[in-house]
Design a protein around this nucleic acid. Structure first.
Length: 508
DNA sequence: CGATTTTGACCAGCGC
DNA sequence: GCGCTGGTCAAAATCG
């Protein structure tokens, strides 16, 4: 009577047929594994396929497998754990002699319990490592994006210099102004007059104001980054002052249809003000992050004037503290969105976008809109549309926004073309990964096996999906937070009940 | 009693 | 310079 036990502590590797080691390739329902096992009669048999769940062998070969619920499903992950499984053959010819059936059952139970404990411990270690890997992934991604951005900027600056040289030979000063790609900060002025202004004095005023903004914003706290956060974008030195100021004041706005007073994003917030904003009958509430002393992150929550069932949450700043798992999704997605906005603020977006990193980083189930009308550039992630609906492109804050960048949804499985001023992003094709915005479903089911074809479209998916789910349904958020907390063993904090109640009274 | 919210006052930027 | 607006501060009020 053979008793197979999977022991993850000692090295006997189960290779699948692709001979490519993958600890997550063992899926229920007949994972193929070439193993050598000893059978009941102690003769060596080669099993070309080991059906782990076969009822036929259940009485003889009992295999205990703890199914991993891996978050970053299609991450091609090397945990460094040297994950192996061992088939320990406890069966001997003389097994039947020594013990009674009851004792055998007790022994088996103890064995199973021991194995379960061991696997739970390893599972816990894996979860922690997954979390760390995901954080590192975010950091690396943004760093890579920044490097790409910097490289493109340098190339572009060279081109601009060449263009300037040529233009000065052939055009008047005004014509040069039109020929040179205009920076985003010039577009941020709310009126069309500013957008097309050729008056150099107005540009000087803009620079002057932005310089003041830098001085005000450049507090030590705002630059503090912890190891598991996406690092703040490094601004290339050769970027103009205007862009420098823009990068420090980027806002990410999330629009979600919700009856709740505030979407819970995993962070703790304290309300510090409320104002009636012009053009909106609903008050705007101001919150600051209270998860750490001196955290510079603030957010504004306001119902949309056009549709008061829609809640608009605008984030500004970067957390200077570790985030709970429930907050990572939102923070990562807003960070990616901000990155996208920053990329659009320069003239180097073409090459940058072609890297496709941004595309997958901001892959919400709906659309994103960039507004140049606000005092500071704002990117709006519109999560109010159902996943299969046709995106509605519209400006935010100002219908006369000069600058709308709709993003096609990806979840439909089709490829979306990003349009950016009809020229800058033209021709950009985003990946057409099919994906779901049902984050729990995504996390609990086996991933599509496309490790090689989509090397970087993995964890970003789950992050964006999580964000979509979180922001779209506050009730779901609570469940998600609880689920993540239980999964990660973390402490996903949400807004306080008091906060909820008060905001229900005011905003709801 | 400490934490949080409320709310009027204050400040800065911007347009006219 | 003045007024408007957005954003923040801080004392008072409220809550658990």
């Amino acid at each position: 009577m053979g008793n197979f036990t999977l022991d993850t502590s000692e090295p006997l590797v189960l290779f699948n047929k692709t001979s490519r080691w993958n600890p997550f390739s063992m899926v229920p329902g007949g994972a193929a594994a070439d193993v050598v096992a000893e059978g009941e009669d102690n003769r060596r048999k080669v099993l070309s396929e080991m059906d782990l769940f076969s009822t036929r062998n259940q009485s003889h070969n009992r295999v205990v497998v703890k199914k991993e619920n891996f978050l970053g499903n299609d991450l091609d992950l090397n945990t460094g754990l040297n994950l192996v499984t061992m088939v320990s053959n406890r069966s001997t010819v003389g097994d039947d002699i020594s013990t009674t059936g009851e004792d055998q059952t007790i022994d088996k139970l103890k064995d199973i319990q021991n194995e379960l404990e061991r696997m739970n411990i390893e599972n816990q270690r894996l979860r922690e490592m997954c979390l760390q890997v995901s954080n590192n992934y975010n950091a690396l991604q943004t760093h890579f994006v920044t490097l790409m951005h910097q490289q493109e900027q340098e190339l572009r600056n060279e081109n601009i210099q060449n263009q300037d040289q040529n233009a000065n030979d052939h055009l008047s000063h005004d014509q040069v102004s039109e020929a040179v790609p205009r920076q985003f900060m010039e577009l941020r002025q709310s009126t069309h007059d500013h957008l097309i202004s050729r008056d150099s004095s107005s540009e000087e005023k803009t620079i002057d104001r932005d310089t003041k903004t830098i001085a005000r914003e450049d507090t030590p706290d705002s630059d503090v980054w912890t190891s598991n956060k996406v690092p703040k974008l490094v601004v290339p030195e050769n970027i103009e002052h205007t862009n420098d100021a823009t990068m420090r004041k980027v806002r990410v706005s999330v629009r979600a249809r919700s009856d709740a007073p505030m979407i819970s994003d995993g962070c703790q917030w304290r309300k510090y003000g409320q104002k009636m904003a012009k053009g909106n009958p609903c008050p705007r509430a101001y919150y600051r992050c209270t998860m750490a002393v001196g955290c510079p992150v603030r957010k504004q929550v306001q119902r949309w004037a056009d549709d008061q069932t829609i809640l608009v949450t605008t984030y500004e700043g970067t957390h200077n503290h570790p985030l709970p798992p429930a907050a990572v999704a939102m923070a990562s997605t807003t960070s990616a969105a901000a990155t996208m906005l920053l990329s659009g603020s320069t003239s180097s977006v073409d090459g940058f976008m072609n890297s496709n990193l941004l595309a997958q980083a901001i892959r919400p189930p709906n659309i994103a809109t960039i507004s140049a009308s606000a005092p500071f550039p704002t990117i709006t992630l519109d999560l109010t549309h159902p996943p299969n609906s046709t995106p509605i492109f519209e400006g935010y804050n100002n219908p006369a926004s000069q600058f709308a960048m709709p993003l096609q949804a990806f979840h439909q499985g089709g490829s979306g073309a990003m349009v950016y001023n009809q020229s800058r992003f033209s021709g950009l094709q985003l990946s057409n990964n099919e994906w779901s915005n049902q984050v729990l479903q995504y996390q609990q089911t086996a991933p599509p096996q496309h490790h090689q074809s989509q090397p970087h479209a993995s964890f970003g998916h789950s992050l964006s999906a999580a964000t979509a789910a979180i922001t779209a349904d506050p009730n779901f958020t609570a469940a998600l937070a609880a689920a993540i907390t239980s999964i990660m063993g973390g402490n996903g904090s949400t807004i306080s009940p008091k906060n909820e109640e008060n905001n229900n009274r005011e905003l709801g």
